[in-house]
Structures are given as C-alpha cells and as structure tokens.
Amino acid sequence: MSTPLLELRDVYRSFEKDRVTIPVLQDINLAVHENEILCIVGESGCGKTTTGKIIAGLNDPSSGSVLIRGRERATFTKEEQSKLRREFQIVHQDPFASLNPAHTIEQILSFPLKRHKLVSDRASLRRRIWELLTLVDLTPPGDIVNKYPHQLSGGQRQRVSIARALTVQPRLIVADEAVSMVDVSIRVGILKMLHQLRAEFGMSIVFITHDLALAKYFAWEGRIAVMYLGRIVEIGRTPDVIGNPAHPYTRALLAAVPEADPDITRRKQPMRLRSDDIPKLTAIPRGCAFHPRCPFFVPGTCDHDVPTLAPSAEHPQEFACTPLQQEGSLQPYAT
C-alpha cells in the first residue's frame, strides 16, 4: 500500500492533574490513508478525542511520532506547519460553542479565506462563500450569509462548521461527535453530505463517535477502531468488526446497544460483565486493561502481559486479546 496520509507511531500521551500523571493514550499505532474513512469508537475517557486532536495537529504526543506522508511532523518548518494546519481540519461536537455568536455566517467563512489569502478580491470572496454554502446544502446561500449562528437550527449550524473547515481545502477532516447533538432526522443528511464531499475532493475523514450504529452506517466502506482506556483494542474493516467482533470489549458493546427494531432488540443476549465500573485512568489494570470486567478472563495470561494487536484465522481484523489469538476461541471464566 502507498504511504499513508498520516500515521501515528507508538504514540503515548499523558496529562498532568494535581501532580498525578494520567496516561490518556498508550501504544497508539494508526494509519489514515488518502480518501479513507476511519471511525474511532469507544466510551467516554477512552482517548478517542485526544487521538482526534493529535491527528488534527491540535495536540502533540508525549512520546512517539506523527508522520505526514511518511515524514515526521515535528521536523516541519514553520511555513510547512502552517500549510499542514490547513490540510488537517477538525469539526467539533457543539457548533454553538465553536461558531462565534457575534459574527454572521459570511464573516465566519470570510476569516479563514482572507487569512490564508485564498481569495484575491471581494468578488471572488463572495463567490467562494456562495460555493461553500452550496456544497454543504445551505441553499439558497443568500438566505444564510447575513444570519447569525443562533438564527440557524442545530443541523444548519453544523453544516456551517463543515463549510468553514472546507474553506482551506483540507485533505483530512476529523469529525468529533459532529452529529451527536443533531436530531436523528437530520443526522443522515449531514453524513451523506460528508460522504459526497469525500468522494468529490478525495478527502479522508476520521469520524469519532460513541454511537456504534452510526459508525457502522458511516464507515461501512472504511475501517473502525475500538478504543478502551487509552488503547486500541480492535481495528479492521467495518463489516468485519461489526459483523464478527473479536475482542470481548467490542462484543460487550455490540451486545449492549439497543436497536431500532423491537424484535431484534428484545432478542439480543446481553453479555454480563464481571464488573460494571470502568477503572480510572490513574489505576489502569495490569495486562489487558479489560481483564477485571471480562467474562472470558484467563488468570495468569490476561492480568500479566499487555496483549498486542494481531488478526487470527477467523478474524481478519486486528484485535488485542491473547487467549483468542492463541486458542481461537474464548471460554467463560469460572469463579
């Protein structure tokens, strides 16, 4: 395969709080290719947002490296870095918080265009804004340009956020829970639009969500990475991960999600975990971090070494579960 657009190698990231070091990401190895859709799923505190911020260049690893087209990001010159920042954009969850309430939509979209000298005169500025609003289906643009964010609906505001990200013609967009605050009825429209933009401009999209059904829908032709307590526990093609999950944590998540179909959701067999509580990041369990909750726990193995990501005969996706990799199947843990 060709050189990835972006690659995280052995990324470790920690934050200091009250003089305690909190490891938020550990051993993250991840590549994003040109024109690819990668979904990162996991529960709160799993590190998905921090991963997204490192990808977008809003945050740096504490150790490990970020490679852009094979070259280490830390070695880029100032001018190159500024160009990079245009290539990697992020769309946040809450468009109300990320759009300046005192600026009109026209002003919001003008700033990046002028700042990066992407337009030469007023006429081309106006043309470009019209074009961007049409791209994100905010039509007719004339009805939108003079409005303030509060005059738009949640879905429209999120479309403005996406239009703003597009002003600088990015190669990759990180969408961090970008449709979580938008009504179900509107979500699919925004996701379809992102698909279309990706097809049209050959962008890559890193889609971060806690909603597995949404991840399945959006990344069906891409890949999904499942994170737990700062590590990737499973990663592979979406149909493999969703259709035949390997890691016990992925299985538990999939079994727990209610479905918009009464018969299916009531027939689902939930997986009873050994503990309902997520351990704190300051006290991550030894070995596989999931072992204290895992119903397939193998003493001496799971609580000893950190499992590595690898596929198996039954599972083409990579997963980090030593017993499943070695035995090919999982046995319930008997207390």
Binding site: G155, S185, V188, K192, K216, Y217, E259, D261, I264
Partner: peptide
C-alpha cells in the same frame, strides 16, 4: 416512517437511510 428511515440499525449490514428534509 421518515423517523424510522433515518435510524441506522447495527444488525442490518449496509442500509440505505434517508434524512427528513427541512426543519
């Protein structure tokens, strides 16, 4: 029906979904 059409379901493989136009 439109609400149901907009909701993805995990166990259905690839689905064709539609959003509701307007607000």
């Amino acid at each position: 029906l439109s609400l149901l059409d907009a909701a993805p379901r995990l166990s259905f493989g690839h689905e064709e979904l539609d959003s509701i136009p307007g607000s």
